[in-house]
């Protein structure tokens, strides 16, 4: 995974709350067996609307999504994270994330940064007046800065320590866990014999 330390890019104001993962990428786009190419499904139901924020010229090339609370609730589909990344997003700012989405983001290298609702509202206002305002997110400092001058928004964001560390180092979870293979083996040796097993297979009612 590519390390993430600091990112500056233009932002998109998605003025909605409760954007579940079915909205981020509808189920009909989940059929691919590859890991890339999911950008076509991003917010697919809304993209037909020429007025939808991603379709506006000023949104082109944006890499920071600024959205309302409860972003990424619902289905566990990691495709939601991939669709955002494949489209070009590196950071999502929201006052609250769905748990599984937040976990998936950390694993794939998308920064899901939890900010105060006031920060979201302030950046939305800023973007309304100046759509191409750059937003800088610094993972080391846990800080977000948007714009300059009197309207400048600067605040901190929350991300759990472990995810932050992994993102900063660009580490792969499986590699870390396999370094504890001995602990897993020891644990397995003490599992009771009556614990369920799928093999040998038994069937019936």
């Amino acid at each position: 995974m590519e390390a993430f330390t600091r990112h500056t890019g233009t932002a998109v104001a998605l003025r909605r709350s409760n954007v579940d993962t079915d909205q981020i990428i509808p189920a009909s786009y989940l059929k691919r067996v590859t890991r890339t190419g999911f950008e076509d499904g991003l917010f697919a139901a809304w993209r037909n609307d020429p007025e939808f924020v991603l379709n506006r010229p000023e949104s082109r090339g944006a890499s920071v999504l600024v959205t309302g609370p409860d972003f990424g609730t619902g289905s566990s589909r990691e495709h939601a994270v991939w669709a955002l990344q494949d489209y070009g997003f590196r950071v999502v700012l929201s006052p609250r994330f769905g748990d599984i989405f937040r976990g998936n983001s950390g694993k794939s290298g998308l920064l899901a940064a939890q900010v105060d609702a006031k920060v979201v509202a302030a950046i939305w206002d800023l973007l309304e007046h100046e759509p191409r305002t750059p937003v800088t997110v610094d993972l080391r400092e846990r800080s977000v800065v948007a714009g300059a001058g009197p309207d400048r928004v600067a605040d901190s964001f929350d991300v759990d320590d472990y995810t932050r560390w992994r993102l900063l180092e660009g580490l792969d979870d499986i590699g870390i866990t396999l370094s504890h293979a001995e602990d897993i083996k020891v644990y397995e040796e003490t599992r009771p014999s009556w614990k369920p097993a799928t093999l040998p297979a038994r069937t019936g009612l």
Binding site: S76, R77, E78, H79, V81, I100, G103, N104, K107, S108, D160, Y162, D173, I174, I176, T177, L178, A181, I184, E188
Partner: peptide
């Protein structure tokens, strides 16, 4: 509980998950 695809891979490979 539900997990994402990266975690599916993690469980397949290690039979464990990292969880807070």
């Amino acid at each position: 509980f539900g997990i994402g695809t990266s975690e599916v891979e993690h469980v397949l490979a290690t039979q464990t998950l990292m969880q807070a």
